[in-house]
Design a protein around this nucleic acid. Structure first.
Length: 311
DNA sequence: AGGCAGGTGGCCA
DNA sequence: TGGCCACCTGCC
């Protein structure tokens, strides 16, 4: 648990309970397609950090396997299934989307079968998406990594990422968790800017101060139904419609949230004839057209657009 | 080399 | 309400 002393070793690879058999592409799109900014892939192994958890994932013969630093094994074993949405039947959820009457949605689903929505810590999701304004995923990941490295507590040190025979990196690596909001409230805006945040530093600084003055506010928000939770998130500086919906979709599993970003705007403009529509009416169209699981549909449209973008 | 990027907030009519 | 524009700065 502490950052000093001998690095812990990784436990043995174990098969993941549940019935998710994603292709490498679907796994990548789920972990690194803009929902989360703390999963990184090296040599076919995905490493993810959330709250105090560290896990690695890999595909072997089409089956998903995981391991964790030995000292964290039991906590990760219980946290990982929820994080990956293994508690829900995504086949059934996806099947209930209106793909039978929507050929484009059907194509998007077929392109990424089994794509799912992650369930990440609420506060960390808020932090990630406060960084996201007019930035691409690579850059958001850099910001978040710097925030963790400079302002987040060390979770543990773990041994080589790859087996010794792999020869890529045998150095033990330190893993930091993201700073909590009460910790961020003590970081100056200037220090935040040093994490490549630019004008987003102000959003994070002011949001941190807001939250620090209201203990329990964030937890309470997470527990509210979608509409009420969204209204509260919109009170935060730097949180608009799009960020609020992302936080609720990826950090609270509210599948009715329908974030409208430039990709989804383009997708609906071209595929659904909504040229020239503004984000607000597009969001309304999305919620009514795709129904109560609109957020899941959105993720498929988003993935398709990223893959085929520009055509 | 310079424009652009998973938006938001604050101005104007 | 609706449309612009500044806001930072590292990447492609």
């Amino acid at each position: 648990m502490t950052g000093i002393g001998k690095p812990t070793t990784w436990c043995e690879w174990q098969s993941l309970p549940g019935r998710w058999h994603p292709t490498p592409e679907v796994l990548a799109e789920t972990l690194d397609g803009g929902q989360s900014f703390r999963w990184h892939q090296t040599d076919g192994i995905w490493t993810g950090v959330w709250a105090g958890n560290i896990a690695q994932l890999c595909l072997r013969d089409g089956a998903l396997h995981w391991r964790a630093p030995a000292s964290l094994q039991s906590t990760v074993a219980s946290a990982l299934p929820l994080c990956l949405g293994l508690d829900r039947d995504w086949t059934a959820l996806t099947d209930s989307l209106p793909w039978r009457s929507d050929a484009h949605l059907a194509a998007c689903i077929a392109a990424f079968p089994g794509l799912r929505i992650l369930r990440q810590p609420f506060g960390e999701t808020l932090l990630g998406f406060l960084c996201s304004a007019t930035k691409q995923i690579v850059q958001i990941k850099q910001m978040v990594a710097l925030l963790a490295k400079k302002h987040g507590a060390i979770i543990c040190r773990a041994g080589p990422l790859t087996p010794p025979s792999g020869g890529i990196s045998n150095a033990a690596r330190q893993f930091h968790r993201l700073p909590r909001w009460d910790e961020l409230a003590r970081v100056s805006e200037k220090e935040l800017r040093a994490c490549l945040l630019g004008f987003r530093a102000g959003y994070i600084h002011r949001t941190a101060r807001f939250l620090a003055a209201r203990p329990g506010w964030l937890e309470e928000t997470e527990s509210l139904p979608y509409a009420a939770a969204k209204a509260r998130l919109l009170e935060l500086p730097g949180v608009g419609e799009k960020v609020a919906d992302c936080v609720l979709l990826f950090g609270a599993a509210k599948l009715e949230a329908f974030p409208v970003d430039t990709w989804v705007l383009k997708s609906l403009a071209r595929r659904y004839g909504l040229d020239g529509w503004k984000p607000a009416p597009v969001a309304h169209f999305g919620r009514t057209h795709f129904g109560p699981l609109a957020g899941l549909a959105q993720q498929h449209l988003f993935a398709w657009e990223r893959k085929h973008g520009g055509r």
